[in-house]
Design a protein around this nucleic acid. Structure first.
Lengths: 212, 212
DNA sequence: CAGCATCCCCTCGGATACTG
DNA sequence: CAGTATCCGAGGGGATGCTG
């Protein structure tokens, strides 16, 4: 990216991560941890391979990622976020929190991945009753499944299925994620096709975080 | 900007503000308040006028700014951040905080403006002794002057000169801003050409903020 | 002079094909 | 699997011109 040529930390940050795709590559590395080329490509539907390889080179030159040859079982290059790269997490959080306001716009062709189902509750919600009993929520959206666990005031998520969840949410991504992140209410979620089974009272445990 | 086509709030945020110059336009509107076309152009050295006008149109369509015809004394259009636009402040703060790590790189041709001297302390530092006595610091860098006032735990800045400041910092932007934001120490600032007059002990009052 | 629109040129991004 | 090579169109930068 051409430099903005301004002695301002925002402009200098954008000199490094302002290129198209760059912040989404960092998102993938934050969500998945160290990745191979193909892992990144899968997580970034639509990116051209030449762009991905050139962005990875630029990120390495800027010191945001390191490229290592993985040990024998894998035998391929692994891209890992450096300390400077990991430090972008608050930037992606605030950007994603701001972007929630656009998640209700209907764009049926948008790609959707289970990982995005998993990180949203962790980054954008808090447990309203941190001292309350543990809760296990199963979420299903667009053939992707994830488990949200509330325990000790922390929110954990993982892909896959839960055994005996307290609450099950199933529906299109807009309905499930919209309700979880608080951008739509339960009534609208229902009209968008959300089905809820189990202890729906537990939904109040998840509260949208407020910025700063 | 071409959409990323992902149902992810980070990707959707970048669909709106990921274009080149867009976030810097928002920065100007946050720092200056409502602006005329020419105010923005002055604050964004290097932007082409056609790009500025097209970005302003896109920002208006996205609902981030409003365009109003100013009352008679000005008789020109005024661009103002909407609520959604103002909500980008935490994004710019976290981005700028992250970008501080690049402010020590020497790039002599970078443009520098007094406003950037003023916002850095407000966004990136806190008063380490909020109950301490009020402090007035005069900063001078690259012919730009600003006043930093610490009072009641708050940090205020304005462009211009102070009468009888407690402390005066004068030097190249890298030295002044680097020291204020904590990315370089006093010794290095001195070697970069910083001159300090007055109560240099007051410098400890300004502490870099930590992210999240 | 403020606020664009137009032009040219060149870089960048996107899609596809191809290789170690 | 992990990229590189290539082509083409879109977008950015810069200069200039137009309109009130």
């Amino acid at each position: 990216m051409r430099s903005y040529g301004q002695y301002c930390s925002i402009a200098r940050a954008l000199d490094v991560v302002g290129d198209r795709w760059t912040l989404l590559i960092v998102r993938e590395l934050l969500l998945q941890g160290p990745c191979r080329f193909t892992d990144l490509k899968k997580g970034l539907p639509g990116i051209a391979t030449n762009l991905l390889s050139s962005r990875l080179r630029e990120l390495e030159e800027a010191g945001l990622i390191t490229r290592e040859d993985a040990p024998p079982p894998v035998a391929t290059a692994l891209y890992t976020l450096s300390e400077d790269g990991l430090a972008l997490e608050p930037v992606l959080k605030s950007l994603g929190l701001w972007g929630l306001r656009f998640m209700t716009d209907e764009r049926p062709d948008d790609a959707f991945q289970g990982r995005w189902l998993a990180y949203a509750p962790v980054w954008f919600t808090t447990d309203a009753d941190p001292d309350g009993p543990p809760v296990v929520i199963q979420v299903v959206a667009a053939d992707e499944t994830a488990v949200i666990e509330l325990r000790d005031g922390r929110i954990h998520t993982r892909l896959g299925h839960a055994t005996d969840p307290d609450l099950v949410l199933d529906g299109p991504p807009r309905a499930v994620l919209g309700l979880l992140t608080g951008v739509i209410d339960r009534e609208l979620a229902g009209r968008l096709g959300l089905s809820v089974h189990g202890r729906r009272d537990l939904l109040t445990r998840l509260q949208p975080v407020t910025q700063d």
